[in-house]
Simulated assay, not measured.
Amino acid sequence: MRISIFPLTGAMLYPGLRLPLHIFEPRYRAMVSDSLARDRQIGMIQPQRAEEGAPLYAVGCLGHIAEVEASPDGRYNILLEGVARFRIRRELTVQTPFRQVEADIIPDVDLEALSAIERALFEREAKAFADRHGYRVDWEEVTRLDDVALINGVAQIAPFDAASKQALLEADGLHARCDLLVQLMQFFGARDSDDGAATLQ
Rank of each mutant, 00 (worst) to 15 (best):
F24I: 00
F24A: 02
F24K: 02
F24H: 05
E25I: 02
E25F: 06
R27M: 01
R27G: 02
Y28P: 04
Y28K: 04
V32T: 07
S33A: 14
S33P: 02
S33T: 15
D34T: 11
D34G: 09
D34R: 08
D34N: 10
L36I: 09
A37I: 03
R38F: 11
R40A: 12
Q41D: 05
Q41I: 10
I42V: 14
G43A: 10
M44C: 10
M44I: 05
M44Y: 01
I45K: 03
I45Y: 04
Q46W: 04
P47V: 02
R49A: 15
R49N: 09
A50C: 00
E51N: 00
E52I: 12
A54F: 01
A54T: 02
P55T: 11
P55Q: 09
L56T: 07
Y57W: 15
A58F: 00
A58E: 14
G60K: 05
C61S: 02
C61M: 01
G63A: 06
H64I: 04
A66T: 13
E67V: 11
E69A: 14
E69C: 12
E69G: 08
P72G: 13
G74E: 00
R75F: 07
R75G: 05
Y76L: 01
Y76Q: 05
N77H: 15
N77G: 12
I78R: 06
L79S: 11
L79D: 10
L80H: 09
L80M: 03
L80C: 05
G82T: 07
G82D: 04
G82Y: 05
V83E: 15
V83L: 13
A84R: 15
A84G: 10
F86E: 04
F86P: 01
R87S: 14
I88W: 01
I88F: 02
R89E: 14
E91D: 06
E91H: 04
L92V: 06
T93N: 12
V94M: 07
V94F: 00
T96W: 09
P97M: 13
F98A: 12
R99C: 11
A103T: 05
A103D: 02
D104R: 09
D104V: 10
D104N: 13
I105L: 15
I105V: 15
P107K: 06
D108I: 00
